[in-house]
Design a protein around this nucleic acid. Structure first.
Lengths: 340, 340
DNA sequence: ATGAAAGCGCTAACAC
DNA sequence: GTGTTAGCGCTTTCAT
């Protein structure tokens, strides 16, 4: 079977190369009849245009890079799925690029990645969304990019955000409404700006409710199970321990549950726990963890919509899209128990 | 800044295009002096060859596709990492392609994927590694591919396997050595051939030990938490329940732990549980789950080594590489308790 | 509305 | 050892 190229199609349809190209790109100035003939030829020869040849002629690669450094596999998987969905629709391929955000050579690494693959655009997930040195690099080299869940909002850079602070505020209000006054907080990884947002929402709700936040109730976690465990041990060993713990993500919340279990503290009767992210583990612990679901897949999809439009220099109605989180009430919280 | 092309480099180095190309591809017949000059030009102009132009000339894309349908995010993440490691080393990019192996149009879907992206090769993970219709399709179209963890071994198709059956046999022996005789088994997803291998190893050890395997002790799971839960409920509700449960992966083992907890059955004192895969969850349950670690990342890396060699038509020393699993003894198993 | 010619950046085949 | 020529499959420019 001879490989179908644009020349073969042109010959088959009895038109010129250029006309085939016109049909391929939905350009105007082709008669309906000709269009039909050419499309029939596409079908008959099962023709697929070569991305390479196209790219060479137009200086595009039809490749989009996805950069991430996140231990949360559920999150990344959702990001990948959402991104791929739009890529397939729009005729792009996605090149994934996990990288270490704390490495010394991270900028060189990324510079290389971009140059070698000749990417048309880049998707930045936290913490890269807020890495100023990277953003500068991209701006200098005029590389298209979209930021997912950044904290810093620039006027002219496209991004998709969600309301972490607002929902954290609500989660805290929920705990307060259950009667909790001594609430422990386990912060997320300091490199991730969402950590700050989640903490801010917590503080805001506490201060509005007139509740003091003791320094010893605030612990620094790193978004992983082990750090949740360590922080929980410290919190629950206090002379006057909290009756509720707000963990900045589900892995850390699961760590809290483990510690409570070991210390024979019943969750939720004696201790309420909340997480964040709706990770798989939050459904698989017992009790299951009350948490916040982020529309991660949709965020990625929307982000790529923006990016592709920008690559194609189409008009952007919005340069910033905000999506809402959802509070998921499950089994890990209850009304504060009487003092025992 | 003017974009560096091969022409610019040639001019800068005072040689011809072709000589630059020779240096680029490490071809022989270039004097050391010239080589140096050209390499200096690369450096000075920070030249990166265009994959598109190269691809167009050589009919390659420098793109490798990774096909998977697996709910286990840890597994996929490891596969991706191992694959990417070799891709970067060898100058390829990886295009990930999650797909639904049970879908009607799966073959069309994959055919399209391959044709559109002009991939140089394909990596198949289970259950695609054993999907005969797909293999036929690839063979017909002369597409290079490597299979990860297939069950069917063909003479001429390259693959990387591990010894699931053997290690299952050992895990079962371990349970038997702890005094267990009534051992429940939760099978994996029937679409995945490893499910069968794990079960075979179990059966082999049981029959060698002269232990009967009651039909009611064998349950059909699907590799997910929920199915583990359902199967465990059935097993533990039996009049004469098993004293140990061998779950074919960690998610299902975690489901077993949940049920045991709800039924106030102590693991491991009253019930021993084993999993498979060393998924994150197996470290985060309490007790942690005794399991089997597969060298997934290395398998993917080795698989891509084979694939790239095949693409480059280099000599293959082996067309089949076997890697060993590791048994991880953790907290979920104990000597069988006295009858109570 | 359609086509001819040139060129994108690289490599293959063949000179010298 | 090195250079010349042609061409990969497509788009762009400019005729017609």
């Amino acid at each position: 079977v001879k490989k179908a190229t644009i020349n073969v199609v042109a010959e088959y349809a009895g038109v010129s190369k250029k006309t085939v190209s016109r049909v391929l790109n939905n350009e105007p100035n082709v008669s309906a009849k000709t269009t039909e003939k050419v499309k029939a030829a596409f079908e008959a020869l099962s023709y697929k245009p070569s991305p390479q040849a196209r790219g060479l002629a137009t200086n595009q690669s039809y490749l989009i890079g996805l950069i991430y450094d996140n231990p949360n596999k559920d999150y990344i998987s959702e990001i990948q799925t959402g991104a791929l969905n739009l890529c397939h629709q729009a005729g792009y391929n996605l090149i994934i690029h996990p990288a270490d955000c704390e490495s010394e050579e991270i900028l060189d690494n990324l510079r290389n990645f971009i140059a070698q693959s000749q990417l048309d655009g880049l998707v930045l997930t936290p913490p890269f969304s807020d890495m100023q040195s990277l953003l500068n690099l991209l701006d200098e080299h005029d590389i298209n990019y979209v930021r997912i869940a950044p904290t810093n909002l620039y006027s002219d850079s496209i991004c998709v955000t969600n309301n972490d602070q607002e929902i954290s505020y609500k989660v805290t209000q929920y705990l307060i409404s259950l009667g909790h006054q001594k609430i422990g907080f386990i912060k997320g990884h300091p490199q991730h700006n969402v950590s700050e947002q989640r903490f801010n929402g917590f503080q805001q709700a506490m201060s509005e409710a007139g509740l003091e936040v003791h320094g010893e109730f605030i612990k620094q976690g790193f978004f992983d199970f082990d750090s949740g465990e360590i922080c929980a041990k410290q919190l629950l060993a206090l002379r006057d321990p909290p009756t509720a713990i707000f963990a900045s993500n589900d892995y850390m919340a699961a760590g809290v549950l483990k510690v409570a279990n070991l210390m024979n503290i019943n969750v939720p009767k004696q201790l309420s726990v909340t997480g964040f992210d709706d990770a798989a583990i939050s459904r698989h612990t017992w009790p299951s963890i009350t948490t916040v679901q982020q529309p991660v897949r949709i965020m990625a999809y929307k982000a790529l919509e923006l990016l592709v439009k920008q690559i194609r220099k189409e008009h952007l109605e919005h340069t910033h899209i905000q999506l809402d989180n959802t509070f998921l009430e499950r089994e890990s919280c209850a009304v504060r128990a009487e003092i025992h």
